[in-house]
Amino acid sequence: MKEEIFVSGRMNHLVDPHLNIWHWEIPLYLFLGGLAAGILFFAALYFINGKEDQYPTAVKRTPILAPILLIIGLLALFFDLRHKLYFWQLYTHIKLQSPMSWGAWTLMVITPVSFIWSALYIREFFPNWDWKYNWIKEVEKFLQQYKKVIAWIMLIYAVILGIYTGILLSAFNARPLWNTSILGPLFLASGLSAGAAVTLIMSKSPEERKRFAQIDLIIIGIELFLIIHMFMGFLASTQVQIDAANLFLGGPYTMAFWIFVVILGMLLPAALEIMELRKFHIPAIVPAILVLFGSLMLRFIFVNAGQMSRWLY
């Protein structure tokens, strides 16, 4: 048998023995960004379809969370930077090949749009809201006319935001676990599922709840398909990607991934939602919380496990 002993003199902090450069900030942001993308996507979709009154929670109420989630996410991103005072450099450059640059500019568009959307529906929460200044009222009147345009921008940028949270990782070929194009659609699906879950929690209309439980079920199905597809791709690929897949197939992340993400975050809520659709009484909050938890864990596990996967040479 040929054995190999590898001794390296390098011991750089946060790089060795394996990469550990991204901690809780990045996965938290990926979760919040994906969740905000999901919320805004459904709001824009049903507004454009003219179903504002059929699904009022999704269009008018849940979007108020989006700016809050995005601001917390942006703060997390800011905490992650090590050269904080130079953060503005993100907005003096456009780098088409850098997913992070795309992300920074996408946030620059969708954060203000989410604020505008929430402001237009502020009377849902405060019926007697008064903007006080005349010029703000003028601006509001102006924006009300162009709500459809705003909804389209929101729809498109929500998809970009949702998919970019995955592409951010998949663009790194140095980390074989991340380096799969499935990650973009998987993170988008997970974000949409989380967005639907928030509507399930906040909605009081049985019709809306039924529709979003159905949506959530379909998305969970897509997620499971993507996960199986991802492992098939890894296992049919090169040794480094087989090793990456093995982090989840017997390696250190096996239990965390299959229990927290797949069973608790997908299979169990899907089963509960099916039971609810079959008229069993299940509190809607239970599957919804499980979906949100699974979505968060998916990000944490992928960001951490990806940093352990590497090329061997």
Partner: peptide, 21 residues
């Protein structure tokens, strides 16, 4: 260093792990 924001993307992108914060 005057343009670097310390995001760590380049560190994650290097298959040789040749960079450090």
């Amino acid at each position: 260093p005057k343009k670097c924001i310390g995001c760590g993307a380049c560190i994650a992108s290097c298959p040789y792990d040749a960079r450090y914060p």
